[in-house]
Simulated scan of single mutants.
Amino acid sequence: MPSLPVRSPQELLHPRPAGLYCPAGDFYIDPVQPVARALITHGHADHARAGHGTVWASPQTLDIMAIRYGEDFCQTRIPVEDRVDIAEVQATFTPAGHVLGSMQITVDDGNTAITVSGDYARVDNPACAAFALAPCDVFVTEATFGLPVFNHPSPQSEVEKLLRSVAAQPDRCHLVGAYALGKAQRVIALLRQAGWDRPIYIHGALQRLCDYHIEQGIDLGELRPATVKQGKDAFKGQIILGPPSAFAATWAQRFPDPVICFASGWMQVRARARQRGVELPLILSDHVDWPDLTRTIQDLSPQEVWVTHGREDALVRWCELNQIKARPLRLVGYEEEAD
Rank of each mutant, 00 (worst) to 15 (best):
V6Q: 07
R7G: 05
H14N: 15
A18R: 10
G19N: 10
G19S: 09
D26R: 15
Y28P: 10
P34W: 12
P34M: 14
I40T: 07
G43F: 11
H44S: 07
T54Q: 12
S58Y: 02
L62F: 02
Y69H: 14
C74K: 01
V80P: 00
V80Q: 02
I86F: 06
Q90A: 14
H98K: 12
H98C: 13
V99Q: 11
V99M: 10
L100V: 04
G101I: 12
S102P: 14
V107W: 14
G110M: 04
T112Y: 05
T112G: 00
T115W: 01
R122T: 15
A127V: 11
A130C: 02
L133C: 10
V138G: 05
V138I: 13
V138C: 07
F139R: 04
F139N: 07
T141D: 03
A143G: 03
A143L: 06
F145E: 03
G146L: 03
L147R: 14
H152M: 11
P153A: 01
P155N: 00
E158R: 04
L162C: 07
S165V: 13
V166F: 00
V166G: 00
R172M: 02
H174Q: 06
L175I: 14
V176M: 01
V176S: 03
Q185C: 12
G195C: 01
W196E: 00
W196T: 01
D197E: 08
R198D: 08
P199Q: 01
I200W: 01
H203L: 05
H203R: 01
G204V: 07
L206I: 05
L206N: 10
L209R: 09
L209D: 06
C210W: 06
Y212F: 14
H213W: 09
I214D: 05
I218E: 02
D219Y: 11
L223P: 07
T227Q: 12
T227S: 13
V228W: 11
K229M: 11
Q230M: 06
G231Y: 10
G231R: 06
K232Q: 14
A234C: 10
A234E: 09
I239N: 07
P243W: 04
F247R: 06
R254N: 08
R254M: 06
A263P: 04
S264W: 07
G265Q: 08
W266M: 11
V269G: 01
R270T: 14
Q275W: 02
Q275V: 04
R276P: 02
P281L: 06
V288L: 04
W290A: 09
L300R: 13
L300Y: 12
V307H: 07
V307C: 03
E312C: 13
D313W: 11
L315E: 03
L321E: 15
L321R: 15
N322Y: 00
K325Q: 14
A326N: 10
R327V: 02
R330C: 08
L331C: 01
G333Q: 09
E335T: 08
D339N: 15
D339L: 14
